[in-house]
Simulated assay, not measured.
Amino acid sequence: MLNAANTVNSKMAYTQAAYSQALSSSAQTHYLLPSDKTIVAHWQPAILLNLMCNSLANEEAIALSNKLLKGTRLFYSDFSKTNLFISPEQFQRFIVNCNATPNQSDLAFRFGQRLLPGHYGDFSHGLNQVNSVFAAAELIQKCAHVFSPLLTPKVNVYATELTISFYSSYGCGNSHRFVCEAFIFAIKNWLEQQLGRHLPWQFEFNYTAPEAIENYEVYLGDNLKFNRPVTAIRLPIEYAHSSWQVSENFTLPCAATPVSLLNLVRQLLRNNIQANPSLEWLAQQLDISPATLKRRLKACNTQFRDLLSEIRLEVAVELYQQQHFSSDAICQYLGFYDESNLRRFFKRTTGQTHTQYLALT
């Protein structure tokens, strides 16, 4: 058994002040960058390290740990330090290394199984006191920086369904699929444990179906869609207020914290999508130069043009699916000259025309 991981529970006694200080000292003005050290190493990184080395003798565990930490500028011995924080870049590299280990095709799901309610201070205490699916989703959204540092959830309530959409906080790159699998299964697994029954989820992923699709079917079921504009879980609205008994009332913990640059950019683009925002306009909103913005987006494994297309596609699908807009109304809302222009946008972005793609929603 890995000694460092055996100390995880004792390291969970982080003071909220230490965590808040790390967030505030790392924040660049009003947003966080991939290099900012804001992730508590003894929370999820240590859980993953323990999962990888759980059955090994101490010397073997140390050797494997240092191998898995290659490229992160971290070592096994670092996990014995108090108040150790790592950056999203370091955590993502560690995930990629773990995921590349042979015979670990369901590693993300097994990791997700360990994440909730967790030992995350106020968040875990609050999660143990919520009493419905909706209340849990609301808390997870509010405290995303604690439970889901690499993937930002957004809760929406529509007339017919509750949706939780997930956005990469720092541009996960090669770790994106792993992160989606882990955190989505963590939420599904914990909520169903609380209720004592399965729920009729629908899962959508913004990437192609993996070769090991059987893992998705085992852990998530068969109501799966891939190549969608946004990774999301959907639940019929009548299940959103499914509840269970708790021992005491609570108030939502977790004070608001700085958002990541990527999430802030998405928010600005979405709120101004009808104005056809430009790179120069966006840089002005962030009070940085266009060149600096390009450089920081590149560090998040993306670029302005791709983000703008992602937001347009997401909004178009939402308008069609939730508000039943016609093609002409979508064109008008998003500033496309005509339906042929909209068709070319969908063909370029998804490989299908808008009528083909929207028919799958």
Rank of each mutant, 00 (worst) to 15 (best):
1 M>D: 14
11 K>C: 12
13 A>W: 13
25 S>T: 15
25 S>K: 14
28 Q>K: 12
36 D>E: 13
37 K>Y: 10
39 I>N: 12
42 H>M: 03
59 E>L: 02
70 K>S: 14
71 G>F: 00
75 F>N: 15
78 D>M: 10
80 S>D: 02
81 K>F: 05
83 N>F: 00
85 F>N: 06
87 S>Q: 08
87 S>H: 06
89 E>Q: 13
93 R>M: 11
95 I>S: 03
96 V>S: 01
100 A>W: 01
101 T>Y: 15
101 T>K: 14
104 Q>P: 10
106 D>F: 02
110 R>L: 08
110 R>S: 06
112 G>F: 03
112 G>Q: 02
115 L>P: 04
116 L>Q: 03
118 G>W: 01
125 H>P: 12
134 F>I: 13
135 A>W: 08
136 A>D: 07
163 T>N: 06
167 Y>F: 10
181 E>V: 05
182 A>W: 03
185 F>W: 15
188 K>A: 00
189 N>S: 12
191 L>M: 07
199 L>Y: 01
200 P>D: 13
202 Q>S: 13
202 Q>P: 00
207 Y>D: 02
208 T>C: 13
212 A>Y: 12
221 G>V: 04
226 F>T: 09
232 A>I: 03
246 V>Q: 12
246 V>M: 09
249 N>H: 09
250 F>L: 03
257 T>N: 05
273 I>V: 02
276 N>R: 13
276 N>A: 15
278 S>M: 03
281 W>Q: 07
281 W>S: 04
282 L>S: 05
287 D>C: 01
288 I>A: 08
289 S>N: 04
294 K>N: 12
296 R>K: 14
300 C>G: 05
313 L>A: 02
322 Q>V: 13
326 S>I: 06
329 A>T: 09
329 A>P: 07
329 A>Q: 15
333 Y>L: 09
333 Y>V: 10
336 F>E: 07
340 S>D: 10
348 R>C: 06
352 Q>W: 11
352 Q>P: 09
354 H>I: 00
359 A>F: 15
359 A>D: 15
